[in-house]
Nucleic acid binder design. Structure first.
Lengths: 152, 152
DNA sequence: AAACAATCGTTGACTTTTTCAATGATCCGT
DNA sequence: ACGGATCATTGAAAAAGTCAACGATTGTTT
């Protein structure tokens, strides 16, 4: 994710027309957030992605690996690695699919839920830091717009 | 960038609490946009990043490579590669820094500006596609919020 | 019901990207 | 003028992403 510089002041180049590019804005905000998130999650042996997998495993939605891959925009083989890691550490388990026996459902263990709860708190603090320049309302508005852009 | 699936319907997993994570929302929207952008830019031999560099070279701001690295959240060595490529194709040139002779200023050539103008049009079409679910006002609001979150 | 194509998770190879330390040239503060 | 810092660059190492193939299973077609 490039150099870990959590920008603190508006750079000169932000004046360029490219400063309006949605792609660039998304990349930049995502990059700065990732640095914060991964730093905070490292206390729990997690990274952004393994945390996402763990969260969904804890959600009660009983996601299959395929669903995780689609939802997280990952290659199925990457999900294998992430789940392998979490499983070896006893945070999640692979369960056989109910209607489809090819699929594996990822469910959390009690320990997984314990870790997740703690990590979630740390993560929320990161988001607050990342969006510190926005008001409460703007924060909610941003999330709503992102969700609408993705899913309508 | 994972699999190139431009999500078309709301996935089941979006219901999870993680569907509110700013980090995940940014990653997903950025991922889907990147697929579109890179596909469109390939017609001009560009990718998202080389396009960003080219855009800033065309901006008149006379950015140094260090500024490009900071602004684009890249390692300086990655900027070297990007500029090398653009320079070999005659789209930009390295000029000696004015106050600082260590620095190299990246400026566009006439050909670079020609290519950039075309690519920009294609890119704008991509953004429109990417944010098709938003109204004109929401689109502007999203950009404003992203910029505010980054630079206040 | 038998054959067929498609999908799921997994593996392994391959490419690309990222990260990092080292270097020469240049700048800045003392 | 000296010493420490910064710039662009190189090259090596680590991480992430891409992709094709496979066995097992599913759904579909005949």
């Amino acid at each position: 994710m490039g150099p870990q510089s959590t920008d603190v002041e508006k750079p000169r180049l932000a004046a360029a027309k490219i400063g309006n590019d949605v792609g660039l804005l998304l990349a930049k905000l995502h990059a700065t957030g990732s640095v914060l998130n991964n730093r905070a999650l490292s206390d729990y042996g997690l990274r952004e992605r393994s945390f996402s997998v763990l969260t969904l495993a804890c959600s009660g939605l009983e996601p299959t690996q395929r669903e995780l891959a689609d939802f997280l925009s990952l290659d199925p083989s990457q999900v294998v690695s992430l789940v392998d890691d979490l499983e070896h550490r006893g945070l999640v388990e692979r369960a056989q699919g109910k209607q489809d026996r090819r699929a594996k459902i990822i469910v959390s263990t009690a320990e997984g839920r314990r870790i997740h709860a703690k990590a979630r708190i740390a993560l929320d603090a990161c988001e607050e830091t990342q969006l510190a320049r926005l008001t409460e309302g703007e924060n909610a508005e941003l999330r709503a717009l992102l969700k609408k852009a993705l899913w309508g």
